[in-house]
């Protein structure tokens, strides 16, 4: 699903990633951990096509992201990637349902079918009754569920999660962990960047530890 080969990225004179090679297979759930500044977010950016490597190759779902145009990357993300962020990043102007439907509407889907699918997803995530509520009135956990629904809207091959429980209380965090675990168990490939060991051990089957821009250790995880 994901193949990074000798990926290097520098910011000024500092190497954020220094020759990272990594493979993620379909259906896997991989957690990336490491101290602040070790290159976790940079690695996620490379895989999401949000940033380009100075050297090396990035291949996701059979496509070379490091050689794509901006438009090509946008279309790739639209169809093959779902992203979840620490701070949810929902549009304040739209209610939950329209936030979720947005991802499909950008691909050209009509409002009706897009809203229908969005409602199904919100139902599966247990917040269908909150579909007409604006983000400002949702709890943190609810907002993250809406974000997950939006990420799943276009049936992505790979779901990327950047500190998905970082802004949640423990109860809401637990709910999101369960959600990610459920998704992986039905075949969704997952890449989770986190500081939270509980999240990694709960949801991931493999742990990649980064330090100073390199992979310092890879290990299989026993799910809790």
């Amino acid at each position: 699903m994901v193949r990074l080969d000798g990926v290097r990225k520098e910011y000024g004179e500092t190497a954020a990633l220094d020759g990272v090679s990594l493979e993620i297979y379909p259906g896997e759930a991989v957690a990336v951990m490491g101290p602040s500044g070790c290159g976790k977010s940079t690695l996620l950016n490379m895989i999401a096509g949000l940033d380009r490597p100075a050297a090396g190759t990035v291949e996701v779902h059979g496509e070379r992201l490091d050689t794509m145009t901006e438009t090509g990357l946008a279309l790739f993300r639209r169809h093959h990637l779902g992203m979840i962020f620490q701070f949810f990043n929902l549009l304040d102007d739209l209610p939950a349902l329209d936030n979720v439907a947005l991802a499909a509407q950008l691909t050209g889907s009509k409002a009706g079918p897009a809203r229908k699918r969005a409602l199904e997803l919100l139902g599966e995530l247990g917040i269908a009754d909150r579909r007409n509520v604006y983000p400002a009135a949702l709890s943190g956990g609810e907002r993250q569920r809406v974000a997950v629904a939006r990420a799943l809207m276009n049936r992505p091959a790979l779901l990327l999660a950047d500190e998905p429980t970082g802004a949640l209380d423990s109860k809401a965090g637990e709910q999101v962990m369960d959600l990610l675990l459920d998704l992986n168990q039905i075949g969704q490939t997952l890449l989770i960047v986190t500081h939270d060991e509980r999240l990694a051990h709960r949801c991931a089957s493999r742990l990649v530890e980064l330090g100073d821009g390199t992979v310092v250790r890879e290990s299989a995880l026993e799910r809790l």
């Binding site: 901006e70 946008a74 992203m83 549009l91 947005l102």
Partner: peptide
């Protein structure tokens, strides 16, 4: 800026 980043992350092209 945040909204724009989010829209781009879910596949809004530069032209869009």
């Amino acid at each position: 800026r945040r909204d724009l980043g989010m829209l781009k992350s879910i596949g809004m092209t530069p032209r869009q």
